[in-house]
Structures are given as structure tokens and as C-alpha cells.
Amino acid sequence: MKNLKTIAVAFLTLVSFAVNAQTTKKVNVEKSKIEWIGKKVTGQHNGTINLKDGALVFKGKKLAGGNFTVDMTSINTTDLEGGMKGKLDGHLKSEDFFGVESHPTSTLVFKTIADKGDNVYTVTADLEIKGKTNPIVFDMTVNKDTASAKLIVDRAKYDIKYGSGSFFDNLGDKTIYDEFELNVTLSF
């Protein structure tokens, strides 16, 4: 009887450990993508930016954490060609916007995660851009070896002032909206 109790306790401990075990899954940066959309009064521009590295943490099958580094030097406009594309890419990389020479990377670190069911999680994370860190909240959907999320970022919180109605008056149709969108698809 004593052996049966010992085996039962060992089995329950093993099952509990297996259920609560954390697994870190490195993100495949080659297969993952980040697409951005920036809007202004007279239209919008869109493009891509590359992940430098990242990982998602799972506790059992549930999302439990994550951290990512974005290569800000990879900002790429996809809706323009030639000289106009080069000009916008250069401007986005300049101190007017993301200042990639002094801030070549940005980071996102998950802080809290709430399970909404059906593989959807509400994530609260710290987003660092240009040396400034602010909280951001977004939903992430996880399916097998992929995850996706849409983040709405307020650039004014990161002191990105160019063309912003939050910092300048009378910009008229030259106003660039403070919020930009990131559509993220992760493969791991």
C-alpha cells in the first residue's frame, strides 16, 4: 500500500510538472513579418519592418510570455517606388521619425496575459521606441506554430513629432496622424 501511495504521488507530481512546464519557442525571423500602415489627412503609406529576434513562452499550451527586438534600420516602404520610396524610407529613418542611427532597435516585452478563450489572448506589454517605453495592449491569436496580432501605436508617446497635430498647430492637409498600425504574423 505504501508503494502505491508513493507511485500515485510521483505520478501526480509528474503530471503537474508537465502541465505547468514552460516552453520557450524562438520566432523564425525569416518567416515572420511586420507590416506597418501610417495615415495622413491626404492618404496613407505602408511597408514592412523586420524582426531581429523574438520568442514566445508557453505554459503547457497557453501563452505565458514573449519578447521581441525589431530592426528599425529595416524600415521599408512598399507602396512607393524609385526616388519617392527612397525619400520616404530615409525620412522615416531620420531623427524626424524613428532616429535609427541612434536607436537601431525597438523592443516589446510582454508583462501580463489574459486568456480570452479560443486561442486569443489580451497582452499588456512594454513597447520601447527611441529610448522611450510605454505600455501597449493588444490581442494575439495563437494557432499551432503561428501567432498574429494588430498593434495600434501612438507615436506621440515616443516623442515622434514630425507632422503631428498633437505638437503643431495649423498643419492642415500636411497632418500625419499620431497612430500607426502594425500587423504582425509570427512563425515559430
Rank of each mutant, 00 (worst) to 15 (best):
M1Y: 11
N3K: 15
I7G: 11
A10R: 05
A10E: 12
T13D: 05
T24C: 08
K26A: 15
N28A: 10
K33A: 15
I34V: 14
G38K: 00
K52A: 13
V57P: 04
F58R: 07
G65H: 04
T69E: 14
M72C: 12
T73F: 05
T77F: 09
T77L: 09
D79Q: 09
D79T: 11
D79Y: 09
E81M: 10
M84Y: 14
K87C: 06
L88E: 04
D89E: 15
G90M: 08
K93H: 07
F97C: 02
T105P: 03
S106V: 02
T107C: 12
T112P: 01
I113Q: 02
I113C: 02
A114D: 14
D115F: 03
K116H: 02
D118I: 06
Y121C: 01
Y121F: 03
T122V: 10
V123E: 00
A125E: 10
A125S: 09
D126E: 07
D126G: 05
L127H: 00
K130Y: 00
G131K: 05
F138L: 11
F138T: 01
K144P: 01
A147K: 04
K150Y: 05
L151E: 01
D154C: 04
D154P: 05
D154Q: 03
R155G: 03
A156T: 14
K157P: 07
D159A: 10
G163I: 08
S166L: 11
F167Q: 10
D169R: 09
I176F: 04
E181A: 10
V184K: 09
T185S: 15
S187N: 15
F188I: 14
